[in-house]
């Protein structure tokens, strides 16, 4: 039994021949529908924040620097390529590209940021009222999510290590609760 098994194993090994791929010397493309790096189309985005609200990794940050300018920052280093943002976006401003060769020494290589000009309300001067859910707000609710105003503006962000200068650079950055004596 032992020796016949060994023969069968030789056949098992010889039959398929060489299966090792030539990658990376021979390039390999991802299949259609692959979920690679998400890419934003600046011209389509209306700044509703739906993607930021639904990102399971919380890696899309929104910040209103002034009433007219909203900044959307995508930190690709924590992205899980789930494609939820692209699915949620009402304007189809996000596409999941087939890019998968994303290894890099610097996380900023993976970041994308959008500066969005928002229309202000002629009466109150704000982009739009966030407490009374209006049409734009409702778009952000696709996929089922309701959050309070606070949770919306302060989108949490976690870094690997605590860096005071990062904290200083952004007001909406929440620092981890440290228990000093």
């Amino acid at each position: 039994m032992w020796i016949t098994s060994k023969f069968k194993q030789i056949v098992l090994a010889l039959k398929p021949g060489r299966v090792t791929l030539g990658y990376p010397l021979t390039p390999r493309t991802a299949p259609e529908n692959f979920r690679g790096r998400p890419a934003w189309d600046h011209t389509k985005c209306l700044g509703c924040g739906g993607c930021a609200d639904h990102c399971p990794a919380r890696t899309i940050l929104l910040r209103d620097v002034c009433p007219e300018i909203r900044v959307l920052l995508y930190d690709g280093s924590r992205c899980t390529y789930c494609g939820r943002c692209a699915e949620i976006c009402p304007e189809k401003a996000i596409v999941m590209t087939p890019d998968f060769e994303l290894a890099t020494g610097s996380r900023t290589d993976l970041a994308q940021s959008l500066e969005l000009f928002m229309l202000t309300c002629s009466r109150c001067g704000r982009c739009y009222d966030m407490e009374n859910r209006n049409a734009v707000d409702r778009l952000g609710l696709r996929g089922y999510r309701y959050d309070n105003l606070e949770a919306r503006t302060v989108l949490r962000r976690t870094t690997e290590r605590f860096e005071p200068d990062v904290l200083a650079a952004t007001e909406t950055f929440e620092r981890p609760t440290r228990m000093e004596e």
Binding site: M1, W2, T4, S5, K8, Q9, V11, L12, K15
Partner: peptide, 10 residues
Amino acid sequence: GLKAAILKDS
């Protein structure tokens, strides 16, 4: 094929 080749291996 895999099963045939290994299951009887002592």
